[in-house]
């Protein structure tokens, strides 16, 4: 199981880019932290989620 935004998700073995795409995230409006470290956008495609990983997807909305 992978903990994604605080919830246990059966996503081990998935590429980060696939998870983001399947869950409808707009890549231009997010920041992704994997195990407390920023995951650069260039690595979304090459990073595979492992058991016990912590993934945090921060989605930004407009207004300021």
């Amino acid at each position: 199981m992978v903990t994604i935004n605080g919830e246990k998700v059966n996503a081990a073995g998935m590429k980060v880019s696939d998870y983001l795409e399947q869950n409808g995230y707009d890549l231009q409006k997010i920041a992704v932290e994997l195990n407390e470290e920023i995951l650069p956008k260039s690595q979304y495609d090459g990073t595979i989620l492992n058991e016990n990983d912590f993934l945090e997807v921060v989605s930004f909305v407009g207004g300021g």
Binding site: Q28, K29, I30, A31, I38, P40, K41, V58, F60, V61, G62, G63, G64
Partner: peptide, 12 residues
């Protein structure tokens, strides 16, 4: 910033 894309760009 105001726009979500700009916020994400700066944070990243």
């Amino acid at each position: 910033f105001d726009r979500a894309e700009a916020k994400a760009m700066l944070v990243n």
